[in-house]
């Protein structure tokens, strides 16, 4: 198994996955725009899937463990559906309030005009 700076391939994938998860978490908390929040969650789920793909490589031999792959595939299906749903919800909120944020009242009070 290839190594880099003493880390196995699995470790590298797991670390990259964890980093993506945290980046997404940061985006979810700091970005007010709903589209950003939904995308941030997508980045986080990408991170989780990367960890799973890395774990699949832990078994010895040329063939990776199929079980984490099955989990990733199912996870992708779940994420696609929930993203589509979240986007539809964000769009309804935009239609209803004129803003795609969770607290449109705050925006109107401060007179901020960042729409859409």
């Amino acid at each position: 198994m290839t190594t880099f700076a003493g880390l196995s391939q699995t470790d590298l994938y797991a670390l990259a996955g964890a980093a993506l998860f945290v980046i997404g978490l940061y985006g979810l908390i700091t970005r007010p725009h709903l589209l950003h929040k939904v995308l941030a969650l997508n980045i986080s789920s990408g991170g989780v899937f990367l960890v799973l793909v890395g774990i699949a490589r832990r078994v010895p031999g040329p063939v990776p463990d199929p079980l984490p792959h099955a989990m990733v595939l199912t996870g992708i299906v779940v994420t696609v559906s929930s993203t589509a749903f979240a986007l539809a919800l964000a769009k309804s909120i935009y239609t209803e309030t004129g803003h795609a944020v969770l607290e449109p009242d705050d925006l109107e009070e401060t007179g901020e005009v960042s729409r859409g």
Binding site: L25, S44, S45, V51, A86
Partner: peptide
């Protein structure tokens, strides 16, 4: 929407734990 974002984040934490 607020519920949705909290629920998806909760699920992702859980899934990372499962991994």
């Amino acid at each position: 929407m607020r519920y949705m974002l909290a629920a998806i984040l909760g699920s992702l934490f859980y899934l990372l734990g499962v991994a």
